[in-house]
Amino acid sequence: MLELRLVQGSLLKKVLEAIRELVTDANFDCSGTGFSLQAMDSSHVALVALLLRAEGFEHYRCDRNLSMGMNLNNMAKMLRCAGNDDIITIKADDGSDTVTFMFESPKQDKIADFEMKLMDIDSEHLGIPDSEYQAIVRMPSAEFMRICKDLSSIGDTVIISVTKEGVKFSTSGEIGSANIVCRQNQTVDKPEEATVIEMQEPVSLTFALRYMNSFTKASSLSDQVTISLSSELPVVVEYKIAEMGYIRFYLAPKIEE
């Protein structure tokens, strides 16, 4: 028996919108720790890891570890039927091949049940080691989204370089080239507008903008994004989900042949 009640149901709606472009089918894993997902895109270039901790739910019952295979487009179709202020409850019985999403309006005057068929998904689960990164950039998520969008109208790849001067996003294409430098800025009144750069050593890596743009669909979950870079590792683009957990996107770099 599984029963997870999320008062801020809009968070789940936003999570789905953030990942459904990248991943079509995925297993949602439910355990005592929380509700989680790990999935790769079809080319195995990017990986998404989601965690919604048990403590973040108003009610969290998970009698035994359960893995539920869902088609994310179908799940998004159902969650779009929930109001932004609705409370969402996810329910499943042990051994059942369906999951139920229950939507309650804030005034409790409307209650809806949507039952969705589960699917068997053969997914690879990768071990992600804890790593030290050469540079960690924290910046406003809206700014990062704007940069990725702007650069993708010029080129297909972005070179992200961190030096003591700041973080530079560069691209080039048939029509020309572009460089955007963001400097550290902690003097702003609002912490969500800060740009903070922690650099152990300079690093420069190249990534496909198509994936970066897809990651920025998570921007509505968090005012800030954290970009962790090391020359020997995939970049981590992390959006914290208030009080509950995170959504992390890993993207393998492009390497000179």
Partner: peptide, 14 residues
């Protein structure tokens, strides 16, 4: 010319 690496080249199966 750049080649696109895969995630599975960095992280191994659990």
């Amino acid at each position: 010319q750049c080649i696109q690496k895969k995630i599975t080249e960095y992280f191994s199966k659990n």
